[in-house]
Design a protein around this nucleic acid. Structure first.
Length: 258
DNA sequence: ATGACAGGCGGGGCCTGA
């Protein structure tokens, strides 16, 4: 069994106590982190290694930053191919060796895309780079898990109040179409493989009592290759973490693969 | 339409997020 989770922690240093407690309680094998908001040297490596994890970081000062934690040996690549001039740290990929086999896992922090046409163009270009890279990875015919904060609300049922998002980059028609193109490669949305429930959310805004009103959206996703989907045994959203003091605005989503 | 919060940076507000 391999338990793989994704979590946008909104600063790993601010969230370290939550992270360590959740690792101990949930015992994931592989964790994809996003928005660590620090350079590699500032990542709390020793504390996490002491909890039993190998650590691979692709950090950045102040913004963005991704990491992969693994109880099993990993070999990592940093950065999404397709634009050598892209300085934002939003992608790290690991080959996890376990049980005499391998599973390939990526931690993804897809651009938000709000804030002007340049930012939205960057989001769409990034999604196309991701599609091309995913297409290449799928040719390997391996168990593959592309996990992260996609900043995409795939369907109206993935928001409590979809009308609030119609002009937002997370829900614009082009954004949703690009996400569907990813799925069309043959990837499986793990949550949608196990439930049609319309109230599965992974993010609640800090403002206006959004969590109290359960005014959330589902934007953190694990997309599985067929080889991984065949092994899918369980999916969970650790929504209770949003009720802690000083929470991230996102909660972990995780899968168990046989 | 704006701002509600939160974090980083850096020592005062400003930028970014979703």
């Amino acid at each position: 069994m391999l338990r793989i989770a994704t979590w946008n922690v909104n600063s790993v240093r601010q969230r370290l106590e939550h992270l360590l407690g959740w690792l101990k309680e949930t015992q994931p094998d592989v964790v994809c982190l996003q928005e660590i908001k620090c350079v590699d040297e500032a990542f709390p490596r020793l504390e996490i290694e002491s909890a039993g994890y190998n650590v691979a970081v692709h950090g950045q000062k102040t913004f963005n930053g991704v990491a992969i934690l693994s109880r099993h040996p990993i070999e990592c690549e940093r950065g999404l191919p397709g634009d050598a001039g892209d300085a934002q740290s939003r992608y790290i990929e690991a080959v996890v060796s376990h049980d005499g086999a391998i599973t390939r896992v990526a931690s993804i922090y897809l651009p938000n895309g709000n804030g002007g046409p340049e930012k939205y163009a960057y989001k769409l270009a990034w999604m196309e780079r991701l599609r091309l890279h995913a297409r290449d990875l799928l040719k390997l015919e391996e168990p593959l898990v592309l996990a992260g904060d996609y900043n995409v609300i795939p369907e109206p049922g993935d928001a409590k109040t979809p009308a609030n998002w119609t002009r937002d980059a997370l829900f614009l028609p082009q954004t949703r179409a690009a996400f569907r193109e990813l799925l069309a490669l043959g990837l499986v949305d793990a949550v949608r493989a196990v439930t049609d429930a319309q109230d599965v959310y992974t993010f609640w805004d800090y403002t206006a009592g959004a969590f109290r009103r359960n005014d959330g959206i589902r934007i953190d996703h694990l997309l599985l290759s067929q080889q991984a989907a065949d092994r899918l045994r369980h999916v969970a959203v650790d929504r209770d973490l949003r009720a802690l003091d000083k929470p991230s605005d996102h909660v972990p989503v995780r899968v168990d693969l046989a």
